[in-house]
Design a protein around this nucleic acid. Structure first.
Lengths: 207, 207
DNA sequence: GTCTATACTCTGATAGAC
DNA sequence: GTCTATCAGAGTATAGAC
């Protein structure tokens, strides 16, 4: 999955900067149009570089997409990793909910990038889903199950509890245009969602 | 938005059947690859027709997509339309939740078709979102608000309550590959979701 | 109504000058 | 390292035979 320079030489500062510029532009375009809908021309224009120059830094369109996905994977999983098995159950879970909603608000393009990829069958991410993601979720689900067995939170299927946090928080990023179209002007979707999801999960977690 | 034959002649049986064959194939392909990612070649192959023949029945690729979206819109909104302002609040809302989850289970392609479109900014659906969809949601949100004011359900922001039903039910269709990858084999995602969402919303709605 | 052939455009990728 | 020029293939759409 890694697309780093296979040679032993480290990247120069210019190389590192240009790679970052390209990945930033690629995020803009891939997140909006999906993998096949995005074109190198669009990415080159957003990046302010020529199309052949893109392909000097990355061997192919797919390599850019894969580098983008792997580069963002850690950021995407960190909020769940931070869930502390030794902490107070409700505090830890509510902390996760709020961190995940903050991610949707602050990084909606990243959310849509992953949403596009999974929606289309995750052809370039299946390995990560079945590997790192499943391992992490299984690990944290075991923590949730223990808390439930100890009567410290409601007895809920832990995997689906995690899915519900993903679904409810990512909805505000992925379906942003629908949320805003339905709410109409004069609303702050994320502020309202923050209060609503706080209420929802606090009620749900009561044993 | 309508893409019907502009002439006054009604469609023959053959024409109607071929249009349906094309739309069925288009659903298969557009829902998996999104608008730009789908090709007329793929749709023609799935439909078992030649590419020019597709363009005999529809004037363009975009026309097929638009016909597909408008044709599915009613099916997609019917479960919410069926929410009865005169019924028992919890029964009505739980009925909506279960109907919506059944839609995700039985029509996942339709769910992904709309998800792809909205995710990419809803360029061919914005009008419907701001018109029919907003009107319907506003109308039903007013019902929910009345029930909350009467103390018959918990006092929650009605629009976000509806968003939460959408997010939680559509997640199982749109992110199906992720759900199955994380759960691993030996699970029935929709059966588990049905029980989980029943618990979740019953708890949430208690005043 | 349906097909083969094809026009024309877009897209990913490469060659080669500087 | 970056550019212009360009190729080969795929893509939408049309022409015209049957």
């Amino acid at each position: 999955m890694d697309q780093e320079d296979p040679s032993d030489r480290p990247l120069t500062r210019i190389q590192a900067r240009n790679r970052q510029t390209i990945l930033e532009a690629a995020l803009e375009v891939f997140s909006q149009y999906g993998y096949r809908g995005a074109t190198l021309d669009q990415i080159a224009e957003v990046a302010g570089l020529s199309k052949p120059n893109l392909l000097y830094y990355f061997p192919s369109k797919e390599a850019i997409h894969i580098a983008l996905l792997s580069g963002q994977m850690d950021t995407w999983l960190d909020p769940l990793r931070a869930l502390d098995p030794g902490g107070d159950p409700v505090t830890e879970i509510m902390g996760y909910v709020h961190r995940k909603l903050d991610l949707s608000r602050d990084y909606p393009r990243e959310s849509r990038l992953f949403a596009n990829e999974i929606l289309q069958g995750a052809p370039r991410m299946m390995e990560a889903l079945q590997g790192d993601l499943k391992s992490l979720v299984d690990e944290k689900a075991a923590v949730l199950a223990r808390w439930a067995a100890e009567g410290r939170i409601a007895n809920l299927p832990p995997h689906h509890l995690i899915f519900s946090i993903w679904a409810l928080t990512q909805h505000y990023a992925d379906f942003d245009v629908q949320v805003r179209a339905v709410l109409g002007p004069g609303h702050d979707p994320y502020a309202e969602a923050d209060r609503f999801l706080d209420t929802l999960f606090r009620k749900l977690l009561i044993p």
